[in-house]
Nucleic acid binder design. Structure first.
Lengths: 232, 232
DNA sequence: ACATCCAGGTGTACGGCGTACACCTCTGCG
DNA sequence: CGCAGAGGTGTACGCCGTACACCTGGATGT
């Protein structure tokens, strides 16, 4: 009865296929609509079947993060630390843009998986290879924070904006009245598109700007031999 | 029958009391254990009663954020922009330390509330008052990101660590083997307490270090008249 | 004084979630 | 041939957010 319609028996599941299907489904329908039941259906299987391959939903999410982190390019060799780290982080960013749900999930994991630790370890290693002291590297990693994964907390989570242009104009006017400073910087960034905050501002530029500002700051501290015990 | 046990009739609910109770409950039991049913019980009321005061759980969370943001000190007057912003952000950090769930919730809101916009607006205003161009202020706000709320994504979400010291030693050894770089910086930071990554490192120091590095970077750009169209 | 209204609180019910637990059904191996 | 164990099933439980109809007591208008 439960035979495949196509005659061929469905290839048996395994952890990897489950994780890849979960990633694909999250890409498709968003992480908030990813449920065990959902995913099972996608795989042509009953919900409880998944539990033969992942312990529970938390581990499923862990595994999904691992898949995503696995897509980040390995470090390039033969350049200075700054270029190498920059490149790696931008690669991470590329991955996260393909899996928009991933940043949230990464942040939400209570314990890092070995794959995640590997990535972190390798980033730390890149600073060390660049001659950074253990001390400075440590603090610098904290400053880098989630940017090491290629994302920044969105300032304005991209409001959809009412389609009605008259409404839109009214909203803009109200914004300008109530939040003049925000309106000002939003205007400056949005001249290219008819939208308010969040849109019309080049996320990639913002991200690279931030990363470069950080890396420059790190470099400066490094060059002046900064130590946590000997600061200004 | 449903009279108060103490004889006195329960004071009628209102939006504010609901929000404050929700904040207190989240402080107590954690945000993941805050449910409408839960909260209703705490208030001595049936779950559906809450919906007379908040539209749904999302709006409840919005309101909780508003309460928390309302606890942030207003800007101090009469100092330079750098000191003023630093102080304000550190005040925000103080608030978020009292409500550890709040950072997650702030990040999760799809639309900023007026209260949130007010806060952002005022931070933007502080840069502008410091003479920053609209352009630079805009980018700088992006770099600041969630740090403006006084939090940073935790690098290592504070693993509880096995109590058994022998187990602990074994874990440390394994860490050092598999993730030598991480182990190294963790060691450097953890000499004061017998714990591995996450603990034993002074979060407050890390945060202030990051904020100062950012503010210094901003200042430098400002002083050299940086513009997005005229960069190196 | 009486009718009316309605803000605030109740009770029931629905559909969705994660997942525990007992079961069935193949496949490969002795 | 028998049996074990991996992989898949079915049922059920307790939680969640919340729609909807209902009740109730005090303020209000006449």
């Amino acid at each position: 009865m439960v035979q495949q319609v196509d005659g061929a028996r469905r290839a048996p599941l395994n952890r990897d296929r489950v994780l890849r299907a979960a990633v694909a489904l999250a890409d498709d329908v968003g992480i908030e609509s990813l449920s065990m039941r959902n995913l099972a259906q996608e795989l042509g299987v009953v919900p409880m079947a998944l539990y033969k391959h992942v312990a529970n939903k938390e581990q499923l999410l862990d595994g999904m993060v691992d898949v995503v982190v696995g897509e980040i390019d390995p470090p390039v060799r033969g350049t200075d630390w700054k270029a190498a780290i920059r490149q790696r982080i931008l690669s991470a960013r590329g991955v996260l843009l393909r899996h928009p749900w991933a940043s949230r999930v990464i942040e939400s994991r209570p314990q890092p998986t070995p794959v995640v630790l590997d990535y972190m370890n390798s980033i730390v290693g890149m600073f060390r290879a660049g001659g950074f002291s253990v001390d400075l590297t440590h603090h610098v990693m904290h400053v880098l924070g989630s940017r090491m994964w290629g994302f920044t907390q969105e300032l304005f989570p991209a409001s959809p904006l009412p389609a009605d242009p008259q409404m839109q104009a009214a909203m803009l006017r109200e914004m300008a009245g109530r939040y003049p400073h925000i309106a000002e910087i939003a205007m400056a960034a949005a001249h290219d598109e008819g939208s308010v905050v969040g849109h019309g501002c080049d996320d990639q530029f913002e991200f690279e700007f931030a990363v470069d500002l950080l890396l420059d700051g790190f470099e400066r501290l490094h060059q002046q031999g900064w130590t946590s015990t000997n600061q200004a």
